[in-house]
């Protein structure tokens, strides 16, 4: 598995937010956030973003 380096202060912030958001670990949170942002830029297959888009298309929600 590839590793990337991030600033310690940023990591602390990630850790804090991941805890708040209820994620099991900062790694899991980072993976989720990166995937979500990537889906917005370059969707791959049926992304979570696309699922949300389709549900919005139901008319009853936005």
């Amino acid at each position: 598995m590839a590793k990337i380096k991030i600033d310690d202060a940023l990591y602390d912030r990630v850790k804090r937010v991941a805890d708040t958001a209820g994620y099991a670990s900062p790694e899991e949170f980072i993976t989720y956030v990166i995937e979500r942002e990537l889906d917005k830029i370059a969707p791959d297959n049926v992304s979570d973003q696309e699922v949300m888009e389709r549900l919005r298309g139901l008319g009853y929600i936005e």
């Binding site: 209820g22 994620y23 099991a24 899991e28 993976t31 989720y32 995937e35 979570d48 699922v51 949300m52 549900l55």
Partner: peptide
């Protein structure tokens, strides 16, 4: 997982 804790 990984992903949101619930999925609509």
């Amino acid at each position: 997982q990984p992903g949101p804790p619930i999925s609509p």
